[in-house]
C-alpha cells in the first residue's frame, strides 16, 4: 500500500515541459484547473483529453505512471460516479429497485469522473516534470512579495523541501516499524475500530519519537552548514523566464477561448 504513492514523485528529463519555468508551470496548472471546471460539454472534454494527451506525450513520461497516480483516487472516482448516477433527477433510463438511473445522471457521472482524472493528471504533469526543489523555489518566489507583510516565504519553502525530502524516508521507516511489531505478534487486522486504533500505538509512538530525533539531528546538521534563514542566501539554480515560457503563456487565452466556445455545443445525449 505504502509503495503505491507516486504523489510528489519527479522524473528527471529534458523535455519541453521539464524546461519550462516552474512559476509558469504553476500558473498553467492553476489555469488548467479553473478552466476544467468551466468545461461542461462532450466537445470540451474531448478537447481537454486531447490537450492532456499531447502534454503527456511532450513530457516523455510513460502513460503508466499517470494511471498509477490515479490509484489512490479510484475509490473516490467510483463513489462519486455511483452517487451521481443514482441521485440525479431526470429522465430515467432503467430502474434498479427504488433506484433509477437517469440520462442526466450518467452524463454528470461521466463528466465528474473525467474531471477528477484530468485534475490528477494535470497536477501530476506538474509534479512529474518539476523537481520538488524547483517547485518550492517557485512558491518562494511567488510568495516573496508578501514577505514584507510578514509571510516567511523562505521558511515555508524550506519546510516544504524538507517535508518532500523525508516522505520516502518516513514511509520506509513506517514499513519497518510495522514489520518489527508484527514480528512481536502485534495484530493490526482484527477487532473493531477501537481495538484497531489502539493497536496503532506500537507504530505511532516509535514513529513520532523517530521523527523528532530526525528533526533534531537535521536541525543540527543544517546549523553546521551555516543555515540561518533566508537572509543573504543565494541559489545554485536561478529561475529565469525564457522565450519558451513567454510563448507558452500565449496559449492561455487560446485555451480560454476554446473552452468558452465548447460550452456552446451541447450535442445530443451528452
Amino acid at each position: 500500500m505504502i509503495r503505491d504513492i507516486t504523489l510528489g514523485q519527479f522524473f528527471p528529463g529534458k523535455s519541453l515541459l521539464h524546461r519550462l519555468d516552474p512559476r509558469v508551470k504553476l500558473l498553467w496548472v492553476l489555469v488548467y484547473i479553473i478552466l476544467l471546471f468551466l468545461v461542461n460539454t462532450a466537445l470540451g472534454f474531448t478537447l481537454y483529453v486531447v490537450i492532456t494527451a499531447v502534454l503527456i506525450k511532450l513530457s516523455g513520461i510513460r502513460v503508466k505512471m499517470f494511471f498509477k497516480g490515479m490509484r489512490p483516487i479510484v475509490f473516490l472516482l467510483v463513489f462519486t460516479a455511483v452517487i451521481n448516477m443514482f441521485m440525479t433527477a431526470g429522465e430515467p433510463i432503467f430502474k434498479l429497485g427504488f433506484l433509477s438511473v437517469t440520462k442526466e445522471g450518467i452524463r454528470i457521472a461521466v463528466f465528474m469522473a473525467l474531471r477528477l482524472m484530468l485534475l490528477v493528471t494535470g497536477t501530476s504533469l506538474l509534479t512529474f516534470t518539476t523537481s520538488p526543489i524547483m517547485l518550492t523555489d517557485a512558491i518562494e518566489r511567488i510568495l516573496s512579495p508578501f514577505s514584507k507583510i510578514g509571510v516567511p516565504a523562505d521558511a515555508i519553502a524550506m519546510m516544504m523541501t524538507i517535508a518532500i525530502r523525508f516522505i520516502p524516508t518516513i514511509l520506509e521507516e513506517t514499513d519497518k516499524i510495522i514489520k518489527a511489531q508484527k514480528a512481536r505478534g502485534a495484530d493490526f487486522e482484527s477487532g473493531n475500530i477501537l481495538a484497531r486504533a489502539k493497536a496503532m500505538t506500537p507504530i505511532l509512538i516509535p514513529l513520532f519519537i523517530s521523527a523528532f530525533r530526525r528533526a533534531d539531528e537535521l536541525a543540527v546538521a543544517m546549523e553546521c552548514r551555516c543555515y540561518h534563514g533566508g537572509e543573504g542566501r543565494t541559489r545554485l539554480k536561478q529561475l529565469k523566464i525564457s522565450k519558451i515560457d513567454i510563448e507558452s503563456l500565449c496559449f492561455i487565452p487560446v485555451l480560454l477561448i476554446l473552452v468558452i466556445f465548447s460550452r456552446q455545443f451541447s450535442l445530443g445525449l451528452m
Binding site: A180, Q181, P202, P206
Partner: peptide, 21 residues
Amino acid sequence: KTRDLTRKIGVVFQYPEYQLF
C-alpha cells in the same frame, strides 16, 4: 497467521531500539 509463526521464529530487526514504545 504471522502471529502464530512468532512462537517458532523471532526476529530482531536492525536498530531494534526504535521499536520501543
